[in-house]
Computed example of a mutant assay.
Amino acid sequence: MQVTTTTSATGPVPGLSDKAALQKVAQQFEAVFLRQMIGAMRSASLAEGISDSSATQQFQDMADARTADAMAGKGAMGIAALLIQQFGDRVKDAPAAPDAPNAAARYRDSAA
């Protein structure tokens, strides 16, 4: 993959030279967001459990990361679709939207 800076009427996007790179970065951003959200939900527990240990915590963190990656891969939250819609015109061969659920369209319709 060739990484360059592209320009458009709205300005340059450093590091994004094609639609595949944009899709990959948008999906990775969604995964990071979901990891943070799942971690925050897990840390909201009010009491310590009987099986709480550093090993259990480590395995829960790994399971949470896998869950977040799987959710992002399916476009569960639609964050990647919104990012692609927002920045797609700044990248060569920009896609209209990924094949994930049409979260961007739902967001647009609900905002109206």
Results as ranks from 00 to 15, higher is better:
residue 1 M to V: 05
residue 2 Q to L: 06
residue 3 V to E: 15
residue 4 T to V: 11
residue 9 A to W: 08
residue 9 A to V: 08
residue 9 A to T: 06
residue 10 T to R: 12
residue 11 G to N: 00
residue 11 G to V: 00
residue 12 P to S: 00
residue 12 P to H: 00
residue 13 V to E: 03
residue 14 P to W: 04
residue 15 G to L: 06
residue 15 G to S: 12
residue 16 L to K: 01
residue 17 S to A: 07
residue 19 K to C: 10
residue 21 A to R: 10
residue 22 L to S: 03
residue 23 Q to V: 13
residue 24 K to L: 01
residue 24 K to I: 01
residue 24 K to S: 00
residue 26 A to T: 07
residue 27 Q to C: 09
residue 28 Q to A: 10
residue 30 E to F: 05
residue 31 A to G: 01
residue 31 A to H: 15
residue 32 V to H: 15
residue 32 V to D: 15
residue 34 L to H: 08
residue 34 L to Y: 06
residue 34 L to D: 10
residue 34 L to S: 08
residue 34 L to A: 03
residue 35 R to I: 00
residue 35 R to V: 02
residue 35 R to N: 02
residue 36 Q to R: 12
residue 38 I to A: 04
residue 38 I to W: 09
residue 38 I to K: 04
residue 39 G to M: 13
residue 39 G to Y: 05
residue 39 G to W: 12
residue 40 A to L: 11
residue 41 M to G: 15
residue 41 M to F: 13
residue 41 M to P: 07
residue 41 M to K: 14
residue 46 L to W: 11
residue 46 L to T: 00
residue 48 E to V: 10
residue 49 G to D: 05
residue 51 S to R: 10
residue 51 S to D: 12
residue 53 S to M: 12
residue 54 S to N: 09
residue 54 S to D: 06
residue 54 S to C: 01
residue 55 A to W: 01
residue 55 A to V: 09
residue 57 Q to R: 11
residue 57 Q to P: 12
residue 61 D to A: 06
residue 62 M to N: 00
residue 62 M to I: 07
residue 63 A to D: 04
residue 63 A to V: 14
residue 64 D to C: 09
residue 64 D to P: 07
residue 65 A to K: 11
residue 65 A to F: 06
residue 68 A to W: 15
residue 69 D to A: 14
residue 70 A to C: 10
residue 70 A to W: 12
residue 72 A to Q: 08
residue 72 A to F: 08
residue 73 G to P: 04
residue 73 G to F: 09
residue 74 K to S: 13
residue 75 G to N: 02
residue 75 G to F: 00
residue 75 G to C: 07
residue 76 A to W: 01
residue 76 A to V: 14
residue 76 A to E: 01
residue 77 M to L: 15
residue 78 G to R: 04
residue 79 I to P: 01
residue 79 I to V: 08
residue 79 I to T: 05
residue 80 A to N: 09
residue 81 A to M: 09
residue 81 A to N: 14
residue 81 A to K: 11
residue 83 L to Y: 13
residue 83 L to A: 05
residue 83 L to D: 02
residue 83 L to C: 02
residue 84 I to G: 07
residue 85 Q to M: 05
residue 85 Q to V: 05
residue 86 Q to L: 08
residue 86 Q to H: 12
residue 89 D to N: 10
residue 90 R to Q: 03
residue 91 V to D: 01
residue 92 K to N: 04
residue 93 D to A: 09
residue 94 A to N: 07
residue 95 P to C: 02
residue 95 P to Y: 03
residue 96 A to S: 11
residue 97 A to T: 12
residue 98 P to L: 08
residue 100 A to S: 11
residue 102 N to I: 05
residue 102 N to C: 09
residue 103 A to L: 15
residue 104 A to S: 14
residue 104 A to R: 12
residue 105 A to L: 13
residue 107 Y to V: 13
residue 107 Y to K: 05
residue 108 R to L: 14
residue 109 D to R: 02
residue 109 D to S: 04
residue 110 S to K: 03
residue 110 S to E: 09
residue 110 S to Y: 02
residue 111 A to C: 02
residue 111 A to I: 07
residue 112 A to H: 07
